[in-house]
Amino acid sequence: MTEQKPVLIAGAGPVGLVAAASLVKQGIPVVVLEAGPTISTEMRASTFHAPTLDMLDDLGAAEAMIAQGIIGPRVQYRARDQSLIAEFDFRVLADVTRHPYRLQCEQFKLTRILHELMSKNPLYDIRFNARVENAIDHGEHVEAVLEDGTRIAGAYLIGADGAHSAVRKAAGIAFEGFTWPERFLVLSTEFDFASIIPGLADVSYYADPEEWFFLLRVPGVWRAMFPVRAEVSDEEVMTEAFARARFARVVEGRCDYPIKHTTLYRVHQRVAETFCRGRLLLVGDAAHINNPLGGMGLNGGVHDAVNLVEKLVPVLRGEADDAVLSLYDRQRRGVTVEHVQRQTIVNKQNLEARDPVAHQAFRDRMASTAADPAKAHAYLLGMSMINSLRRAAEIV
């Protein structure tokens, strides 16, 4: 290699550690700078799509993930009265992926698995309580400036430090987009909804003009997400009474679900104006954020990390000019705008459609697509993000 300094990675979340594992696998030393005192235990994202599992399999992490998660071969669209609008089976994608299903598994399990896989590798250095507050691109190398003033030199700095990325801000990269007026409420319960909803899939989206929602099963609990109107205060939303009222709308006559977790957050649709500027590079939430309908945020971040490493390794080895990194920007930013942002916005609009004609058109379209094997296969290529990866590969 012509460059001996390690690659610095801000953030030890799933995307940052995928980038680290991908680089270490290619013999590149990394220093991961994590703001927290240890690997995070936050649940947060929990859906892993087929091509993401293929990538994790290449890193040696998929088997342990699958053992700790729930394989979800089906996804459903339902109406508020529990009638089935459409059902899709990911197993039809067995011709294009080694993992024809969704895996439901909390993201902290992936970070622990990747950390353990790399823990004994001398190329892997992780430092906790090391929040990156600034970054300086010196042209031939970069420096990460930590909260305590410590400066750490590296060949490149990958910002995997979330929506409020210090790396993105240091690079002067705008984060363009908008914030949805409503907030999203995530509730989890140990109650098994499948025991009272016949045939319920592990991932089910409910289209309803009054209040859409979705149910998603992860090990030990069901998670439900509901929109919350802007005029409702945070204090009211976080009460047990509000949570029980939301759950009561899932199945009429039931409101006795034990509530294990409650999370309320604002939802944004934003994309960085560029994913790379000099030696400062962005992946995951530092580069793009979107609403969670479709489970595309975390998966898109993993796809970013794998794509970036494919471009960065030849540069570090002196086999390619760093201009190749602009191809990473074109490919990943391109598909983020074309596919991820557009699809997640459409997903939300479909579920919440208030106009009776639009609502019925969505139901008819979903039913027709699910009933036609060719259309269903094509639809699942998009839902599983295989199409977005194919599109990225076409961009030169």
Rank of each mutant, 00 (worst) to 15 (best):
Y156A: 08
Y156E: 12
L157D: 13
I158Q: 12
G159W: 13
A160Q: 03
A160G: 03
G162S: 00
A166M: 09
R168V: 05
K169P: 08
A171I: 10
A171R: 05
A171V: 08
I173D: 09
A174T: 04
A174S: 07
E176G: 03
F178G: 09
T179I: 08
W180C: 04
W180P: 06
P181M: 06
E182M: 01
E182G: 01
R183E: 08
R183H: 08
F184S: 02
L185Q: 01
L185F: 02
L185C: 00
V186F: 00
L187S: 09
T189E: 07
T189Y: 06
E190A: 14
E190V: 14
F191S: 03
F191P: 02
D192Y: 04
D192A: 04
F193C: 02
I196Y: 07
I196A: 07
I197M: 06
P198L: 04
G199T: 11
G199F: 04
A201H: 09
A201R: 05
D202N: 01
D202S: 00
V203I: 15
V203M: 05
V203W: 00
S204R: 01
S204C: 07
Y205R: 03
Y206S: 02
A207Q: 14
A207V: 12
A207N: 10
P209G: 10
P209T: 10
E210M: 07
E211W: 06
W212R: 12
W212P: 10
F213K: 08
F214G: 02
F214K: 03
F214E: 00
F214Y: 12
L215F: 02
L215T: 00
L216H: 11
R217W: 00
W222R: 01
W222P: 01
R223P: 01
F226Y: 00
P227M: 08
R229Y: 11
A230Q: 14
A230Y: 14
A230R: 15
A230M: 12
E231W: 05
S233Q: 08
S233L: 05
S233E: 14
S233M: 07
S233K: 05
E236I: 09
E236M: 14
V237D: 11
M238V: 06
M238K: 15
T239R: 08
T239V: 10
T239D: 07
A241T: 15
A241L: 12
F242D: 13
A243N: 05
A243D: 04
A243C: 12
R244L: 15
R244E: 14
A245F: 11
R246L: 03
R246M: 10
A248F: 04
R249F: 04
V251T: 04
G253V: 03
R254H: 15
Y257K: 07
